[in-house]
Amino acid sequence: MFTTNFAPRFRSARLRTLGLVAAILVAAGALQLFDANPAASQTLRLTAYAASSDPGTDPNHKAWNDAVPVQVPLTAQLGAYSAGGGSIPTVNAKALHVDNRLLIRVEWADKTQDESTTRVQDFADAVAVEFPSRAATSVPAICMGQADAGVNIWHWRADSQKGFQEPAQVYAGSQVDMYPSRDTLFFTARAAGNPYANPEAGPVQTLVSQTFGTLTAATVQDVKGNGVYSNGNWAVVFERAYTGADGNQAAFADGAKTDMAFAVWNGSEGDRNGRKSVSQFVQLSIMGGDAPGAGGTNKLTVFLAIGLLIGLSGLGVALATGGSRVAERNR
């Protein structure tokens, strides 16, 4: 039926097609121009509510009891790893805000407390959170523009928190004749301004990775942090004012949303650098108001959602099994 009157139809069809294609491209261009993205992120959401009292950097402060946690699954970044999987499978994340400061609490299970890097073969436990430097709200769905905007990483290390140890502290009875000088000059990395070598630096390093640069320490180190190990669990708190001291860094505000990701290093597994457990992007949402009451979402929504899911997928299963039986029979 399509072969009749082929020639004249062809021309008009071609014109119509061209018009359609042009319309699509123009529409896409307009969306891009105005940064109007109809899609939405559907990842895990970590919500930061206002804290009932200021917990500071204490991971065990009671204010954290009210914060609702999310379990963020992690996966190994490395192909070859010794323990048969990213050795830390999930982190439990919470967020609060108080006085225009954002607090992130990360807790994970780790049988070994690795906080010394005195011996050459020892690596420390660590955790990092990563944000796009420019809140990627325009296209949250696929976190695009991440490379364009660079990322901002807050990196807590157990060994940085513990501080440097000298042989006499580590090995009882060890003896050193003398050190001719304790000048910073002879701690070469300190003299070179390497933040990891600086005994004055806190346990959290602020790092930026710009579009094409590699990971570098931020000019201003303004993230505070504290980790506590107990009962086979690390709990680490990060704290920073909404607005970073350095323009390259992620900025937050009441009501803002941004993507974030987690990474955990397990020192006893030799984790360092890219050898770590890393999460998918989750969405961090900063709520202006107080934490909701124990009720949270109303029951009707929960019932509706569960009903919708079970109803639709049940119908799907019925169709899949029943339908293919019919197809089989028709054959």
Partner: peptide, 25 residues
């Protein structure tokens, strides 16, 4: 979020069922 996630997951599962329904087992 709960409602939208449930709707999208349910719809996807249902469509997978519809896609399967016309096929031999």
């Amino acid at each position: 979020e709960l409602l939208s996630a449930a709707a999208i997951l349910g719809a996807t599962a249902l469509l997978a069922g519809v896609a399967a329904s016309g096929l031999r087992r």
